[in-house]
Amino acid sequence: MLGAMEVVSPTAPPRGARGLHRFANPGRFLRLAGRALPWVSAIGLVLVALGLVWGLFFAPADWQQGDAVRIMYVHVPAAWLASAGYMALACASAVALVWRHPLADLAAVEIAPVGAGFTAICLVTGSLWGKPMWGAFWVWDARLTSVLVLFFLYLGHIALTRAFDSPERGYRAGAILALVGVVNLPIIKFSVDWWNTLHQPASITLTGAPTMYVGMLWPLLFTALGASFIFAALVLARLSAAVMERRIRALLAARAEGT
């Protein structure tokens, strides 16, 4: 999907770099990301293609939902990644605020639009699943509302990081918003257990057997794993572009000063 990048920064990694800061060197990040991107994209595409064909044409229909249950193979991975993506956004924000990691700010900025996209998929497919099964495109129950709040948190992060003249201040404001929004994640997860909702509780849990026929579970696991790889590939590509764009800005600024 996306080709390897050939740009190699001439700067050497700082001496004695340890822990996360080993990846702070932009040149090294670009090299690693460029090497990983084709593989991550390809694995994601293959898994999703297998899972979707399996789910659409080979998995059994549900006894009461009929074929509408096949919307699950896109809805559930999108929902998982909407939350997981926000967790990644919050982690990047924490690393940026506490450790001032030079890539973390950029990572947060680039994760947000991808997370917003997957949240949008979750909302649209959920709505299209809800109408024929529940009888309504939308209801204001705790699960649906908290996922809509997640979508607005993503949009708010996107807007906030671009609202300041100095990017540093935008990053700072966005990081704080991202961390405050983490409160919403357990609400999304447990809304269906804590309060009466129209949305059903989770079928796949860590504690019990999945309340789903195995012939439906397998394609779901394929699309979920594949979608995770695609999410990662999108973030890697956007982050690589952002690193290069930052370098371009620095070079242009240096050139403007030099002349």
Binding site: D62, W63, Q64, G135, T211, Y213
Partner: peptide
Amino acid sequence: SEVLAKHDETYMPKDVV
């Protein structure tokens, strides 16, 4: 004035039922 169906978290094929 409105009735919505609330299905549970189980998904099974007709054969199994």
